[in-house]
């Protein structure tokens, strides 16, 4: 990624402390991205749809954890694409432009360019990409069209309590630190996430993955196999050329001479 993009990288800062679980973000996302409603049922929790879906780019996770003070602690966490700097999905995607980096640093997708291979799904450390009925990748794109026009992502725009903030990534991080949040999740993970979380508690309490990583096979493939396939071919061609020039092809005459 070019330096100026890193410098101007935008991000969403999620502050679960401020989230009231009203889920206006879920609706605003659907509204802007024109996503259909999903037929769900109540599974004994407020959380619905149960997880991200091709038509649900973000959800609020509701979890009840023990509390010393109260009967329970009820946690609300916005789950969505992390827009990783080192994005497993982008690395593994075989179709150019299907997953791409916007000028603001978002990992966006192009429905038409997706070849439905689903490799991205399996390379994502956060289990984010989903596939729609047409088998095309579908996930949060940080409202690339809105932020490209200098508007806030739809979810951020609607959030009443500032649990979602959008802005310059570095500024968001330093502001959150100044406010005294113990952990800025995603500050450095995977080269720095584009969705960062400010936690007072341990991120694990909210069910966040500790030290997220791209699957090692993908890293191995990306770091070694990909170059090897190129250098391997190049090497063979070079060796053949060298052989042809230095030793040359098999010659009947020489053999004859020898036989004689």
């Amino acid at each position: 990624m070019a330096n100026d993009i890193t410098k101007n990288r935008k991000a969403i800062l999620v502050t679960p402390e401020n989230c009231i679980g009203c889920r206006a973000c879920q609706v605003a996302c659907k509204s802007w991205n024109q996503l259909p409603g999903i037929k769900t049922k109540n599974n004994g929790t407020y959380q619905n749809p149960p997880d991200l879906a091709s038509a649900a780019f973000n959800i609020i996770k509701f979890s009840e954890v023990p509390s010393q003070e109260n009967p329970v602690r009820w946690l609300f966490l916005s789950r969505r694409c992390m827009h990783c700097e080192d994005a497993g999905c982008m690395a593994i995607c075989p179709a150019p432009g299907a997953l791409y980096r916007t000028a603001e640093g978002a990992v966006a997708f192009d429905h038409d360019k997706c070849i439905s291979c689903k490799l991205c799904v399996n390379a994502c450390p956060f289990d984010v990409p989903r596939f729609d009925e047409e088998g095309k990748v579908s996930k949060c794109n940080l409202c690339a069209d809105r932020i490209g026009a200098e508007m806030q992502p739809s979810c951020v725009k609607t959030c009443p309590t500032g649990a979602l903030k959008f802005g310059d990534r570095n500024e968001l991080i330093s502001a959150a630190k100044k406010e005294g949040f113990a952990t800025i999740y995603g500050e450095n993970d995977l080269g720095g996430l584009g969705t960062i979380y400010a936690f007072k508690d341990k991120p694990k309490l909210y069910g966040m993955i500790e030290n997220p990583t791209i699957p090692s096979s993908v890293i191995f493939w990306h770091s070694y196999l990909k170059p090897l396939s190129l250098f391997g071919l190049g090497g063979v061609v070079a060796a053949a050329a060298l052989h042809y020039l230095a030793i040359g092809p098999h010659k009947e005459e020489e053999e004859k001479k020898e036989e004689v």
Binding site: G21, C22, R23, A24, Q26, V27, K30, S31, L35, P36, G37, I38, K39, T40, K41, N42, G44, Y46, N48, P49, A56
Partner: peptide
């Protein structure tokens, strides 16, 4: 609940809202 309003006459017809709170509980 946040997702529905009054008897739900308006909100139950909105599939986005019904998705979040589909059933009486």
């Amino acid at each position: 609940v946040s997702e529905h309003w009054q008897t739900g006459c308006m909100t139950r017809h909105c599939s986005w809202l019904l998705e979040m709170q589909p059933q009486n509980f």
